[in-house]
Amino acid sequence: MKNILSAFDIIGPIMIGPSSSHTAGACRLGFAAHKILGEGVRQVIFHLYGSFKETLTGHGTDKALLGGILGLQPSDERIRDAFELAHERQIYYSYINMPGEEDHPNTVVFKLTGVNGSEKTIKGSSIGGGNIIITRIDDTDLRFTGKYSTLITKHWDQPGIVLKVSAILADSQVNIANMNLYRTYRNDIAYMIIETDQQIKPEYLDQIKTIADVEFAVAIEKLF
């Protein structure tokens, strides 16, 4: 059965044209990727798959992806000027058309370098109507949609880590809506994606960051 639709799934979103999946969704993917990096972007390489390759300039997918990386939302008219904006902020960018197909036709892999030198490879797809899904961070397959306020942690797969993180969330009166753990190998690097009903305040995020075995944590506000 299909999802129960809202009036605003039909009327809206307010967006920069011309395509909800190739422009609005692309922008949202870039926005999500820059949030996941957790610091300002210095350099980004876009690896493009499927129809993202074909619609790159015609649907403004290039500007939308870059606009998102610059922190613009899909309704922001500055998306049109994304190249100039990136130039002003001295952010380096390039697009590479990748051979072969990914699991979804509208797929991009972001190779990001931050202003403080951190690096991340983030893969995501635009799945229609401006909806997105992030499917991989570095070497770990996972699932992030941006439909909730979300806590993402990268940590060492050790007993008790979930308890420590959730205790801090409980302490901050944040309710967990959905929670998933992703790892490639036992005792290795793992990710936790916790979708919450409230946004996590910075001071509690800082506490989570200080937990031993947590390598990285970022709290992302509901994207839409």
Partner: peptide, 12 residues
């Protein structure tokens, strides 16, 4: 089509 702001209704 010129990347202006619109409201999808029901699509772009």
């Amino acid at each position: 089509a010129r990347m202006g702001r619109i409201a999808a209704c029901p699509t772009a």
